[in-house]
Design a protein around this nucleic acid. Structure first.
Lengths: 288, 288
DNA sequence: TTGAGAGTATAGGCATTGCCTATGGAATTT
DNA sequence: AAATTCCATAGGCAATGCCTATACTCTCAA
């Protein structure tokens, strides 16, 4: 039994003629005749009586045709359900972002995205890189906004942006009015930094090590805003990515001139994943 | 979209692996892989994510699989419904018989048939040959028990029995004690016969004509029993087929020795008709 | 009664399809 | 690091579905 055979027998049942059914199905009449014969052999019974020049359903045929019609209808329903799912703007997307990106990138972007896809279901989580990578792997997250470097071959990465690092200094700091400075200029300064586990801390230390300075870490925290408060209080200076600049705080931001003092933000997905319309739109949107 | 593709994707959904699905479907894994790819191209979306060495349904796949399962189930239901109909002992059969056969053949046979097929639905009608032939043609009858000669190419005939003709004479007739007689011996005798429209009348007259006698028809009726009454009363003699012999009547039956003085009874169906189990059984039964 | 027309069935040919085996590529396990 | 496992690709081939041509039968009109 094949689908085209079902289409042919239904066409015969509707038109009352092999020839007209063949026209409707856009095949030659002998081809249709052969396929009907084949189906009848497969089922072990005649579906049509050939009475001279007219054709009539047999009892078995009358029993069969409603099933055949239903199957063909369900094929269309199956196609539609897949097409709908594929184009559904009511889909969901789960996105993770690391804490040094989430508060600066996600609010504005997700507000704009929700406006564009009002029926989409967004789920945003803020976690560290290892946690987010694991969630991508177990498929509880569709997308993660991370920072390089990453060494996961099973992830497919889409660059979003590369931003310079800035030194945050107290208002009365000698470098407060400088247009830029080199990392080596910060040798001997006390630092306030994110604690272990944050990839930005690793990035900062890597940049310092490359500039041959060993940062004296006077204070650690889990969020930039705490760090900024400490800088304002004169406890020490810090490094932040450009997106974390807060113009209203009592600090000054000075661009780091070292060419390697940058952070590349990426969107990461698990390699091999297929996405629905909403997920695809989110990924496309956040890259622009 | 083809049935085998649906079988393959359902097997993957159930086993979680292309390789195990291929085993279950008894085809090589590359063949299954290609068919899944073809279905995905046809639908325009991925049904499965290939994640390293594991496979997982996509959203579109999760939407599709229930439909695919339902379609495959319905295919089996369709097959079953046809097979059931083909083997159903509760089917119906409509049979016609001409008046010179019906009262002698149908009662005993239909009683035996009803005992053998208690759930079958029998419908028996008694009509003349032209009416029965027309009913076969418009499909209101499945089978007709008729007598030769017939000249209908659209009918398929199955011989039941050939029986000799008998002369019916009064008890005190000179031939009453004869073992047999030739038709020519009846020249000059008055006849009582069935009226026009009955094929047995045509048969009788044809036999007489062939024997070179012109029967003097003193009385006509529509049934043998009336004819028998007239013979008993001495109004004339008659011809009857063997099956119409009534041993309890006040007449004597003498076999006609002319070799052409016979009647062949046949079961007739419309050429090209397919039959259900009950109709097939009836036809087979009445031929034995 | 005869010939034309209409409809289904058969025959043979051919492009396409579904399956095969062999093997490549990548991930996972030992 | 090597072996194993799983899916994907490649090339070959038998089976299939369609084609055209035509046979056969029935119906209709002259």
């Amino acid at each position: 039994m094949e689908f085209h055979q079902l289409r042919y027998v239904c066409a015969i049942a509707e038109t009352g003629s092999f020839s007209r059914a063949a026209e409707r199905c856009q095949i030659a009449q002998p081809s249709l005749s052969q396929q009907v014969l084949k189906l009848e052999e497969d089922l072990g019974t005649k579906l049509f009586d050939r009475l001279g020049r007219s054709v009539r359903l047999t009892e078995a045929g009358r029993a069969f045709i409603p099933h055949a019609r239903s199957i063909l209808e369900q094929i269309e329903t199956a196609r539609s359900s897949v097409a709908d799912k594929n184009m559904d703007v009511r889909g969901s997307v789960s996105v993770g972002a690391i804490p040094t990106i989430a508060p600066y990138l996600m609010p504005r972007f997700t507000a704009a995205f929700a406006k564009k896809y009002p029926d989409a279901k967004l789920r945003i989580v803020e976690e560290t890189t290892p946690v987010l990578v694991e969630s991508l792997r177990d498929l509880s997250l569709d997308l993660a906004i991370l920072a390089l470097p990453l060494r996961h071959k099973d992830l497919e990465l889409f660059p979003i942006r590369t931003e310079p690092l800035f030194a945050v200094v107290p208002k009365d700091h000698p470098y407060a009015g400088a247009e830029s400075l080199a990392l080596r200029d910060l040798r001997g300064e006390p630092f306030v930094m994110l604690r272990d586990g944050h990839c930005f801390r690793d990035l900062s230390i890597a940049a310092c090590t490359h500039a041959r300075i060993t940062p004296n870490i006077a204070f650690e925290s889990a969020q930039f805003s705490s760090l900024l408060g400490m800088v304002t209080a004169g406890v020490g200076i810090s490094l932040v990515p450009e997106m974390a600049i807060d113009r209203n705080a009592g600090c000054r931001y000075v661009r780091i001139s070292d060419p390697r003092a940058t952070r590349t933000i990426v969107a990461a997905i698990l390699r091999g994943r297929s996405f629905n319309r909403v997920q695809t739109a989110f990924l496309a949107g956040i890259r622009n």
